[in-house]
Amino acid sequence: VRSADPGMAAAQKAAAQQHYDEAISGFDRVLATNPRNAQARFERAWALAQAGREDEAIAALSSMAQDFPELPEPHNNLALLYARRGDLKRAEAELLLAVEVRPGFSVGYANLGDVYRRLAETAYRDALRRNPADAVAQAGLRQLTATPAPAP
């Protein structure tokens, strides 16, 4: 359901045109009149992340996850930001929360699979660094890297 709050359309248009500072300001105006607008909060956090303001995006999504515990999307997007930073364990934890909140959230499961794949690659590489002759680790890494998966 799209928000009918005044200013949403203009903020969304600015975000679509990659005018992220303008979009953030627009979402801020919407939230000044309706602080419980989950869509505006989510899209504002997305615009923050796109603008390179990841710490602020993480704070916004974390706050949103607290205020709207029934929504998996804040956890999913937190996971994407953590994965981008290489913090795969935090990404995993957020994705597990997302699929717990909504067991039918297929995007969360797919992203969780990508995180597990990256964790497995890291583990195999660590094993090979310690023992370059480890045939099991070589085979596992070869299998995982045969078809590259998109990064979560």
Rank of each mutant, 00 (worst) to 15 (best):
E121W: 02
D114W: 14
R90M: 08
A16I: 05
V30R: 07
R90S: 13
A15G: 04
R117D: 12
G7K: 05
E94H: 15
D126G: 10
Y82R: 06
L144H: 05
Y20S: 07
T147Q: 14
N34V: 10
M64G: 01
G86A: 01
L95K: 04
A51M: 06
A93W: 07
A146L: 08
A135C: 08
L128N: 04
P152A: 13
D21L: 12
P6H: 02
L78Y: 00
L81W: 00
A60F: 01
I58W: 01
K89T: 14
A91W: 06
E92W: 02
A16R: 13
G104W: 05
D134T: 01
A45G: 10
G108K: 06
S25T: 15
A146C: 00
P150G: 09
A4E: 12
P35C: 08
L61R: 00
R29M: 07
R117C: 10
R129H: 13
R90N: 12
A60V: 00
Q39L: 15
S25G: 15
V101C: 08
P6C: 02
F27E: 05
G7I: 05
P74N: 01
A45L: 04
A11F: 02
G26N: 07
E22P: 01
R90D: 09
L61V: 01
E22Y: 01
A15T: 00
A135S: 14
N34H: 13
E22K: 12
A4Q: 12
E92Q: 15
A45Y: 05
G140V: 00
E94P: 08
L112C: 05
Q50C: 12
A79E: 00
R129P: 00
V30H: 08
A23Q: 03
Q39N: 11
Q12R: 14
A10N: 02
A23Y: 06
V99D: 12
R142I: 01
A9P: 07
E54W: 09
A14N: 08
A59K: 15
N76K: 10
N37L: 09
N131I: 07
G7D: 03
L119T: 04
V101E: 11
R117Q: 10
E73K: 12
A14T: 10
V99P: 10
A9F: 07
V115C: 03
F27K: 09
A65N: 04
A40P: 06
L112T: 04
A91F: 07
P148I: 02
E94S: 13
P152Q: 11
D55W: 07
D134A: 05
I58D: 04
P148C: 09
L95E: 00
F27L: 08
I58T: 04
G108V: 06
P69H: 04
R36Q: 15
D21P: 06
L31A: 03
A79F: 01
L71Q: 11
A135I: 02
V99E: 12
R44W: 03
R44M: 12
A32I: 01
G140R: 10
L119V: 08
L80T: 06
D55S: 14
A110I: 13
M64H: 03
E43I: 12
R44V: 08
F105M: 09
A16M: 13
R41Y: 04
G7E: 02
Q17T: 07
A151G: 11
Q18K: 15
E121N: 10
A38H: 06
A137I: 05
